Computed example of a mutant assay.
Amino acid sequence: MSIAEVIRERRSIRDFKPDSIDEATVLSLLEDAVWAPFHSKNEPWRFIFVSKPGKERFIQMVADSYLRMDQYKSMPPEQRSQLGAKLKAAFHAVPAFLLVIMKESESRKRWEEDFAATSALIQNFMLLAWEQGVGTVWKTNPYIYDRLFCDNMCLQSDEKIVGVVQLGYPAELPEARERVSASQLFTVL
């Protein structure tokens, strides 16, 4: 498959088979994904992989974060508990999670360069995974901004979660969504 085909055929997968994704597969994908371009001499990223052994603890921390952040404050209490159960069930249906973490710089220029590089790494990872038959979806749900959640995940005070990549083998492949042609967004000076 060509790079163009992988880019055009990749889909965000939200419905996974129950098959697990092993650490070796994820690490192998990351070994290639880290070749994303970066501006500084230091690669600004690190990773936390969550699979079966740590998944229950991770899911509970996410649920606790949502309650702590009062994400459901407008709902009646009975709906809140149902939503918490639905959230946990949805997370249990995901075979593995990859938290992609970036060291934050106080320099705005460096921060933006590091964020762009880390985002490029995530895209590399997702394309490499797709090429290997592994489905992914990049999430930036509210819990990644909860400082206590981040502390519980052992992030340093100068680190941020850029995204959580949910991954597993696709149960089904969604249809492609239309894209606006680049020619409609292209300006020549």
Rank of each mutant, 00 (worst) to 15 (best):
Ile13Leu: 04
Gln123Trp: 11
Thr136Ser: 14
Ala33Val: 09
Pro174Thr: 02
Leu83Gln: 02
Ile48Lys: 10
Thr187Arg: 14
Tyr143Glu: 05
Tyr145His: 11
Asp158Thr: 02
Leu29Arg: 09
Val137Ser: 08
Val26Tyr: 05
Trp35Phe: 14
Ser181Trp: 08
Gly168Trp: 02
Glu172Ser: 12
Asp32Ser: 14
Val6Asn: 00
Thr187Glu: 09
Trp111Leu: 12
Met1Arg: 08
Ala182His: 11
Ala116Val: 14
Leu173Lys: 14
Ile59Gln: 02
Asn141Met: 12
Thr136Glu: 07
Arg10Gly: 02
Gln71Glu: 06
Ala93Arg: 11
Ile144Trp: 03
Leu29Ala: 15
Phe186Gln: 09
Ala176Glu: 14
Asn42Ile: 13
Gly163Asp: 04
Ala85His: 11
Ile101Ser: 02
Lys160His: 02
Ser2Glu: 01
Ile161Tyr: 00
Ser40Met: 01
Ala176Gly: 13
Tyr72Pro: 01
Gln184Thr: 13
Ile7Pro: 01
Asp114Thr: 10
Arg147Met: 09
Ser65Met: 05
Ile13Arg: 00
Asp114Ala: 09
Val94Pro: 03
Pro76Lys: 10
Trp35Asp: 07
Ala90Glu: 09
Asn124Trp: 15
Gln156Lys: 04
Leu30Ile: 15
Tyr143Gln: 11
Lys103Asp: 13
Lys73Leu: 05
Phe115Gln: 04
Ala4Asp: 01
Pro142Leu: 04
Asp15Tyr: 13
Tyr143Ala: 03
Val100Gly: 10
Glu43Ala: 13
Cys154Phe: 01
Leu67Cys: 11
Ile48His: 10
Lys109Thr: 10
Gly54Val: 12
Thr136Gly: 01
Glu31Leu: 11
Val137Lys: 02
Val180Ile: 15
Arg68His: 07
Val188Ile: 13
Gln71Ile: 03
Leu99Gln: 06
Phe91Ile: 03
Ser12Gln: 06
Leu173Cys: 04
Gly84Ala: 01
Trp111Ala: 08
Tyr72Phe: 14
Lys139Leu: 13
Glu175Asn: 12
Asn42Trp: 13
Leu99Val: 07
Trp130Arg: 07
Ser157Thr: 09
Trp35Glu: 04
Lys103Gln: 10
Ile161Gln: 04
Gln71Met: 10
Met153Pro: 01
Gln184Glu: 12
Ala85Tyr: 05
Ala93Trp: 09
Leu127Tyr: 15
